[in-house]
């Protein structure tokens, strides 16, 4: 039978096809402890998805309450556009001496690194949108990974009470403060990814969900 919904990907680059081919199992039934999560953060030149660019992506992999330091991902992108306003916040100067990659090369490495893992970020919408915008510029489809937002998950750890605002949006600083996480290297992609990962582990510890699908429930 022909699957009408299966898109023809043969015109896409090989690295995309390899990435795409990894998505073939029903992850939702698996246990949280056997799931690989990639906790990520991006630093960007600004908040406009169209005009602004990613400066760097930082990721750490988390599985079974563990994070392997060697298995982290930290990449800096070459900038054709230079926005002096954001330099200071992000601590990234256009021509810093460490290695930088073109947007396409960075995406290629990123896709290879994340595979079919579950992506986790704080206020994930923003980071995922920025990455998808970069994908689009490079003629690639959107990311296929499932995404969890630590902002939303954190809210679930709070008790249901009329005395706290159920819709409040918590900043990473607030979550880190509540969980007593050191705010070292805040505002670098990898630093924030690490802080988010520790927060994510603490959230998982509190939510005590067994199966992955339970984390996606409303």
């Amino acid at each position: 039978m022909i699957n009408w919904f299966k898109k023809d990907e043969s015109h896409l680059p090989e690295y995309w096809q390899k990435y795409s081919a990894k998505f073939n199992k029903n992850q939702l039934e698996q246990l949280v402890t056997e799931t690989t999560f990639v906790v990520l953060d991006t630093e960007t030149t600004g908040f406009d998805q169209e005009k602004d660019r990613i400066l760097s992506i930082g990721c750490v992999k988390v599985k079974d309450n563990k994070l392997l330091v060697a298995n982290s991902f930290e990449i800096y992108l070459k900038q054709e556009k230079f926005n002096p306003d954001t330099v200071e916040i992000h601590g990234l100067i256009k021509h810093e001496r460490f290695e930088t990659f073109t947007e396409e090369k960075a995406l290629q490495l990123f896709l290879k690194y994340i595979g079919d893992s579950i992506l986790v970020a704080h206020h994930a919408g923003f980071d995922i949108n920025m990455i998808n915008a970069a994908m689009k510029r490079n003629h690639l489809p959107k990311l296929k990974n499932r995404v969890l937002d630590t902002g939303v998950l954190y809210r679930k750890t709070r008790i249901i009470s009329n005395f706290i605002d159920q819709h409040k949006s918590y900043t990473l600083d607030e979550v880190a403060l509540a969980y007593n996480i050191d705010l070292k290297d805040r505002h670098t992609a990898i630093g924030d990814a690490f802080i988010t990962a520790i927060a994510f582990l603490k959230i998982l510890g509190r939510l005590k969900r067994k199966k992955l699908k339970e984390l996606f429930k409303k």
Binding site: G58, V60, V69, A70, S72, F73, E74, I75, Y76, F98, E99, K184, D185, T188, I190, G191, F194
Partner: peptide, 9 residues
């Protein structure tokens, strides 16, 4: 590749 987390540890 740079590994800032290792520096942190």
């Amino acid at each position: 590749m740079k590994n800032s987390i290792a520096h942190r540890i």
